[in-house]
């Protein structure tokens, strides 16, 4: 007899040890998220996946599912907060979609579309951030980094290399590269590494592959991120 929780009134089964996010993804229920990737241990930093569980707001990617939890997710109040968080991500970096090779395949952009973001709303920081083109095959553009640590986790846990890390605190946080020079070209990062593949934005890109897919055929041109991540979608 499997245990269940309810999400927005829908009964969702879960196995012992699964988080609310795990249970939702298994059941095809979309909870917006950016720093979570089911292949990796939860990070719980972007807070987009915040849901209301028995009256309290918690990150669904880190909270274990427990029998009988009443979860609210797709409600106006939480979606408004998700939109505000997404807008803050846009203004605290330099996210200029028309000039970005990831546009159309970018999860940050796709979440913004899903939430109906018509403007970034807040005043832009236009922060000074460094790009790093020293690696022969991989481009690192920190202007687009949202500090999800997916590359950090992938490099440590899958590639066994420990190439990336977050350094500094708060608004001064930067994505640091683990080499004496601080340059990506002086690490043992390979273009085939998992760390290169997991970036949800255009911060880490494989060189010489920009704009290879025409507009209209990119991942999110027709499918919403909800369609993609829950395996649903329309034709």
């Amino acid at each position: 007899m499997s245990k269940t929780i309810t999400i927005d009134g829908l009964t969702v089964p879960f196995r012992e040890g699964q988080t609310i996010m795990d249970a939702a993804l298994s059941a095809g229920v979309y909870i917006p998220h950016l720093c979570h990737n089911p292949e990796f241990k939860p990070h719980g930093s972007c807070k987009l996946c915040t849901v209301n569980v028995n009256g309290r707001n918690v990150a669904s990617c880190t909270l274990p599912a427990v029998e009988g939890q009443q979860v609210l997710s797709d409600i106006a109040e939480l979606n408004a907060e998700r939109l505000a968080l997404t807008q803050m991500l846009f203004v605290e970096g330099n996210h200029l979609c028309p000039a970005c090779e990831k546009s159309g395949n970018c999860q940050l952009q796709a979440v913004a579309y899903y939430l109906g973001m018509m403007s970034p709303h807040y005043n832009h920081f236009y922060p000074q951030r460094e790009a790093d083109a020293s690696h022969p095959d991989v481009m690192l553009d920190r202007n687009r980094c949202i500090y999800c640590e997916l590359c950090v986790r992938a490099s440590r846990e899958v590639d066994g290399k420990n190439v990336f890390g977050l350094s500094g605190r708060g608004i001064k946080t930067i994505l640091a590269v683990n080499s004496a020079s601080g340059l990506l070209g002086d690490t043992d990062l390979a273009v085939t590494d998992k760390a290169v593949q997991v970036c949800p934005t255009g911060a880490i890109l494989v060189k010489r592959r920009g704009f290879t897919v025409p507009i209209g055929q990119r991942v999110f041109d027709h499918l919403t991120i909800k369609d993609l991540q829950t395996g649903g979608g329309h034709e």
């Binding site: 330099n94 200029l96 028309p98 000039a99 403007s119 832009h124 236009y126």
Partner: peptide
Amino acid sequence: VAIGACAINGGVPAMRNN
């Protein structure tokens, strides 16, 4: 009404901001 990327986030001209 703000129309287009530049009116909404500075757009390509804002690439000179740094």
